[in-house]
C-alpha cells in the first residue's frame, strides 16, 4: 500500500472510534470504582457457578425485599451458563414463592405456589407503593442493572478497552457502591433519609447500606455460617458475589455468546487466510501486479 493510503487507514481507524467516548455516565462528583477481577471477563470468561449461587443467596435474603428481578424466571436458574441449580432445586425454590394467578372459574384472582416457568414476583405492587415504602425513591429492578450502570472511562482508556475487552464497569460499580458508604465529609449535609456514598453519582443515595444485614459495622459477619461452601464472609466477597450474580441476570447468554464467538472468529480467520492466498494467486497473473 502507498503512503497516502496508509495515512488514510490510520485516520479512519481514529475517526471510526472518535465519538465513542461518551457512554451514559454516572454523573458528577463520584469516585471511579476500582476494577475487580471477574471470572467472566475476557474472550474465554465463564461464570463461576458457586459464586452465582452465593450471589443469588445474597439477593434473595437481603435485596429481594426491595429490588425486583422481573425479567428472570425461576427456570433460568437451572439453564446452562447460569448458577447451575438442579431442576429439583428450582422446583422447590419456586414453590416457596406465592404467585398471583387467575381469574379462576368464579372470576377471582388467587395465589398459588410458584412454578419454574414463573417470573420472580415483584416486591411491590407498583412504583407508588415502592416509593411510599422507601422515602420517595424507587429501588430499581435488578434484571439488567449490571448493564445499566457505568462510569466514564476517559481518553485513552476507552480506546484501550476495545482491545482489552474491558466492559465490567457495571459489576465494578455495584461492588464499589456496596463498599462506598462513609461518614459524610465535613461541610456536606446529608438530608434525612439519604446516605453518603462516595461512588454514587451525587453522593447521596436513598438506600441505607443493605449489607449491614450480613456484615456489621466492624466488618464482622453477623452469621459466620452465612456461606455454606467455606467462602469467607467479608463485605468485599459478598458484594462481588452479588455483582457476579447480577451480571449473569443481565446477560444470561454470556457464555453461549463467547463460545460461539470463538468458533466464528476462528472460522473467519481461516477463511480470510484462504481468500488472501487465492487473491494473491489470481492477481499474480497480471503483468506488473504487486
Amino acid at each position: 500500500m502507498k503512503i497516502a493510503s496508509r495515512h488514510l487507514v490510520a485516520a479512519f481507524a481514529l475517526l471510526g472510534l472518535s465519538g465513542l467516548a461518551a457512554p451514559a455516565l454516572a454523573a458528577g462528583g463520584a469516585e471511579h470504582p476500582p476494577a475487580q477481577k471477574w471470572s467472566f471477563s475476557g474472550p474465554f470468561g465463564t461464570f463461576d457457578r458457586a459464586q452465582l449461587q452465593r450471589g443469588f443467596k445474597v439477593y434473595r435474603e437481603v435485596c429481594s425485599s426491595c429490588h425486583g428481578l422481573e425479567k428472570i424466571s425461576f427456570r433460568n436458574l437451572s439453564q446452562p451458563g447460569g448458577p447451575g441449580f438442579t431442576e429439583g432445586q428450582v422446583k422447590t425454590l419456586a414453590a416457596e414463592y406465592k404467585v398471583k394467578d387467575g381469574p379462576n372459574e368464579s372470576g377471582d384472582m388467587f395465589e398459588r405456589p410458584g412454578r419454574p416457568a414463573d417470573r420472580f414476583p415483584a416486591p411491590f405492587p407498583n412504583a407508588e407503593a415502592a416509593k411510599a415504602a422507601n422515602g420517595g425513591a424507587v429501588p430499581p429492578d435488578f434484571s439488567v442493572i449490571a448493564k445499566a450502570r457505568t462510569y466514564e472511562r476517559g481518553f485513552p482508556m476507552w480506546l484501550i478497552d476495545i482491545f482489552t475487552q474491558y466492559q465490567e464497569q457495571g459489576p465494578d460499580y455495584i461492588v464499589a457502591l456496596l463498599n462506598g458508604y462513609e461518614v459524610a465529609p465535613k461541610g456536606v449535609t446529608v438530608e434525612a433519609g439519604l446516605h453518603y456514598n462516595k461512588y454514587f453519582p451525587g453522593n447521596k443515595i436513598a438506600m441505607a447500606n443493605p449489607l449491614v444485614a450480613v456484615i456489621d459495622d466492624n466488618g464482622k459477619p453477623n452469621d459466620p455460617g452465612f456461606y455454606t461452601d467455606g467462602t469467607p464472609v467479608t463485605r468485599e466477597q459478598v458484594a462481588r458475589d452479588l455483582a457476579a450474580f447480577l451480571m449473569w441476570a443481565a446477560e444470561p447468554k454470556l457464555e453461549e455468546r463467547k463460545h460461539l464467538g470463538a468458533k466464528v472468529m476462528l472460522w473467519l480467520l481461516l477463511l480470510a487466510g484462504l481468500l488472501y492466498f487465492t487473491k494473491k494467486r489470481i492477481w499474480s497473473r497480471l503483468e506488473g501486479a504487486h
Binding site: L20, K147, D161, G261, M265, L268
Partner: peptide, 26 residues
Amino acid sequence: MVCFMMVFGWFVFYHPNFLGHADNYI
C-alpha cells in the same frame, strides 16, 4: 469483507455493548 466481519464479530461476540449507551438499559 471477511476481514471486516472479524471486526464486526469482535464487537458482537466480545464487546456487544461498547458502542451503545448504558442508559438505554434503563
